[in-house]
């Protein structure tokens, strides 16, 4: 389980600073870099998470590895996480920051599941319909799920719009079971 509650506290603070200084895009870029670095060097992450290595050494290590590539807010942010013994959330901050920044920009992420590949024309149509519906920019991730049989399932945030054949069959089944037929 990702500790979203803790991550969001730190991310929101960083986002406030970045927005105030108008460097949101830079911070996003830098955090992605950090994420990439950690993925390529698992040993680095292991060292950061190791309980026997002192905080001072971890901070030094971060400085040495990242050097001048990151700006002061990001550097301080990472130091703060080490200081507060929250190194564990460092691998997630890149992704979460992107989500939070997009929310601020008014970009909504949605997932559309379909039984088969959608044509470019259909995708374009979905895009316009959903942008009209939500009145903001929508980034759609398309997925294929053969179990749906047909139709579409749209996920936006915590909501779901189920127009798939499977979903409709499920609802029909429930309706028939609930009817009192004597």
């Amino acid at each position: 389980m990702i500790p979203t509650r803790i991550i969001n506290r730190y991310i929101n603070a960083l986002l406030d600073i970045a927005a105030a200084r108008n460097i949101t895009a830079d911070v996003e870029q830098e955090l992605r870099l950090v994420h990439q670095l950690l993925q390529e060097n698992p040993d680095l992450l292991n060292m950061l998470l190791h309980p026997k290595i002192s905080r001072l050494r971890k901070k030094k290590l971060l400085d040495e590895v990242l050097g001048k590539t990151v700006s002061a807010p990001v550097r301080n942010f990472l130091h703060l996480l080490v200081e507060k013994k929250r190194e564990g959330i460092i691998p997630y901050v890149g992704e979460e920051f992107k989500k939070a920044a997009d929310r601020l920009r008014g970009i909504i992420h949605a997932t559309v599941k379909s039984a088969m590949e959608l044509s470019a024309e259909h995708r374009q149509k979905l895009q316009t319909v959903m942008e009209k519906m939500t009145r903001s920019t929508v980034r759609i991730a398309f997925e294929i799920d053969a179990a749906l049989l047909g139709g579409l399932q749209v996920y936006i945030g915590n909501g779901i719009l189920d127009g798939s054949i499977q979903g409709r069959l499920n609802r029909l089944q429930k309706y028939l079971l609930e009817r009192n037929v004597s």
Binding site: Y155, I156, N158, G159, I160, L161, D162, G163, R168, R171, L172, Y175, L176
Partner: peptide, 12 residues
């Protein structure tokens, strides 16, 4: 006689 409406459902 079965009718259905497509509506946004909150999920978790």
């Amino acid at each position: 006689s079965y009718k259905e409406e497509l509506k946004m459902e909150s999920v978790g």
